[in-house]
Design a protein around this nucleic acid. Structure first.
Lengths: 138, 138
DNA sequence: ATAAACTTGATTAAATTAGTCATCAATATT
DNA sequence: AATATTGATGACTAATTTAATCAAGTTTAT
């Protein structure tokens, strides 16, 4: 797949934290459970997210994690770049004839990803959730 | 990288065949040498290209390979789809909340790739080659 | 016939991805 | 202060994918 599962997990984790209304830290166990992420793997992902400045973590009982920025200040490109180093770089220093296509494609992808914010994902999720409810009540 | 090296090789091979003016089949060895593709690996790639109907192959001495279609009838999406199964499918049947982003991204990529034809690559290569020459003579 | 080519399948090596596990560090509660 | 709870980190492993190699077979021009 284009985006690694690890990255997908990272975005899920951020969504869980972003949907948190009160300022009480959410614990790893809860994130893993509600967003279906393997627990021990999530450790590393949270570690990456913390090092990249997306979240703040607190140890001890009542510890957990909180978003460090507003969801509308976090776009997918930066998340992906920080989690997996690079999005979609083609042959490193390849000077092949059709390099330009891969470059155009890279730019296209980067543009798209940098235009999608965590807040967009949260809005859409909220929207989906409410349309599910209305479907159910019809 | 986004597109596998195998796919890149496949496109290089098609370019080599597409730049062939006369109708004499080009041999594997020559394709491998001029386009810098590992010989034995190219075997499999040519096999895939043949099975997908992009090229015709001829055995025996004076054998080799020819394009089966005009370069302006071959776009990158079909090549890639035939060579590596699929371009960039995300989690197979995943119903995760932000699936729509990956879908939009997939569509964007598919649109871009299906709009680039082998003839575009050949034109660009020709153009690059001639600008190199004029640079040299200045 | 024979040599030159392509064809195919088995096998392998390396890299990447996904994940586990154990140990350490911090802190709220008592 | 002791303890239980939680996060932090690094070593390790398993599975998958990618990128090949190699050998045996088939076709065909000469």
């Amino acid at each position: 797949m284009l985006i690694s599962l690890k990255c997908d997990y990272a975005i899920r984790a951020l969504m869980e934290l972003g949907s948190n209304k009160d300022n009480v830290p959410i614990q790893k166990k809860e994130i893993a459970a509600t967003r279906d992420i393997p627990g021990p793997f999530l450790d590393h992902i949270l570690s990456d997210l913390r090092r990249s400045g997306f979240i703040n973590s607190f140890r001890g009982p009542k510890g957990g994690h909180l978003l460090a920025k507003s969801p509308n200040k976090i776009n997918l490109l930066e998340v992906i770049n920080n989690i997996e180093g690079e999005v979609a770089s083609l042959e490193p220093d390849d000077s092949c004839c059709h390099k330009w296509v891969w470059e155009e494609l890279d730019n296209l992808i980067a543009n798209k990803l940098s235009a999608v914010y965590l807040s967009d994902l949260l809005d859409r999720e909220e929207q989906d959730r409410s349309s599910d409810i209305s479907n159910y009540s019809i």
